Amino acid sequence: MKALIVIDMLNDFVTGVLNNEADAAKIIPPIKRLIQHARADPDWLVVYSNDAHRSDDREISVWGRHAMAGTYGAAVVDELAPVGAEREIVSPKRFYGAFDGTDLEEVFRKYGVSEVILTGQHTHCCVRHTAYGAFVRDYKIRVPADAVCVFPGVDGDAALDYLKMVYGAEITTTSAVMLPNS
């Protein structure tokens, strides 16, 4: 079983308080294709790993108020929003990594997940921490370079190189991930 993890494609990170609209807009179409592919394949899960902060979360002291649980800013952008499909999981998080303080590992165990495909924002932060979580749990990690982005001013290639070098992530493309038997 494969898990497509869509990380922080939230209103606050696309057009809101920590907006990255120019780069985030470029990755919405490839992520949308991957979501459609995963929903159609019974061997895939779609996981939305979304910041859903409380006012006392440590991250708020670093980044300010953003993606506060239950707000518009913490909702997935309309183009990628969950639809309640079978094998679709919404996993709120209060830290950078998708596994930190969540039950995602237990969910993956239940479904027999052996591989994760990481997409979304930001390659050098939340994607990186999610890759670490996947690495220490022994999941195969693939990152389609056309479906992730960084903050403005950050070297996206260096962020991808780090994932490859440190976590053994396969840096690939959306098209390659969707190939049969890939």
Rank of each mutant, 00 (worst) to 15 (best):
D8F: 04
L179H: 01
V127T: 03
E105K: 15
V148H: 09
Q36N: 15
R54A: 14
D56L: 00
D8N: 14
A159G: 03
S55T: 08
I171Q: 12
F13K: 06
N19D: 15
G73E: 08
V148E: 14
R87T: 08
L80S: 05
S114Y: 08
M68V: 08
L45S: 11
P30G: 07
G168F: 06
M1E: 01
D12T: 11
A169R: 04
V62L: 12
F151C: 02
A22T: 13
R39D: 13
D103W: 10
G133V: 01
C126G: 10
W44C: 14
I171R: 10
Y72E: 15
T123Q: 10
F151A: 12
D100N: 11
G73L: 09
T123G: 09
E79D: 14
A74D: 08
K2P: 01
A159R: 03
D100Y: 13
S49R: 01
A159W: 03
T172M: 06
I27K: 05
I117L: 06
D146I: 11
A147C: 00
R94V: 07
P30A: 05
G133M: 01
D138V: 01
A134H: 07
Y96M: 13
V136Y: 09
V47A: 02
A3T: 08
Q36C: 02
E86G: 08
D41C: 04
N50L: 02
V47C: 06
V62R: 14
Q121W: 14
A158P: 03
V83G: 15
A75M: 13
Y132M: 14
R109T: 13
M1H: 07
L4D: 10
M68P: 06
